[in-house]
Amino acid sequence: MTVLEVVPETLLTTEPWEEKGGVHWSTASPLNVREVAKSMNALKARFITITAYEMPGDEGFRLEYHWDLDGKLLGFPFQLSGKSIESIYDLCEAVDWIEREIHEGFDLDFLGREYEPLLLRQGDTAGVNLREEAK
């Protein structure tokens, strides 16, 4: 049995979860985003959003995935070594727009999906880091 399979029973009490800043964070490591999505589907958790962070210096990007489970906010952090992560769009269609927004605004790639038509912008290039553009 994996950590994620025992979420409801252990959410508030056991080691792989830490409540901080209003979120029940999974501290299990390493996490695979597609396995997390499958586990959340099995639990009938509702996908909320992904928050993207551009870390200072050469630390790259961090993505935080959030689901709601009966009013509890679950968080799964992923530190990206490069500029891509597997898409979970085929497992969770609610993720569509936020994956597209992050791709268009942070130039991160969600592997295994298409982005057309562009959600936010016009043009030929989908992935642009708007923060870099704004400097």
Partner: peptide
């Protein structure tokens, strides 16, 4: 230092701030 999250039931549904 760190991240905090809040959710509220707006007229149109859930709003979340991180």
């Amino acid at each position: 230092t760190g991240t905090a999250t809040s959710r509220v039931e707006a007229p149109r549904g859930e709003v979340m701030y991180s």
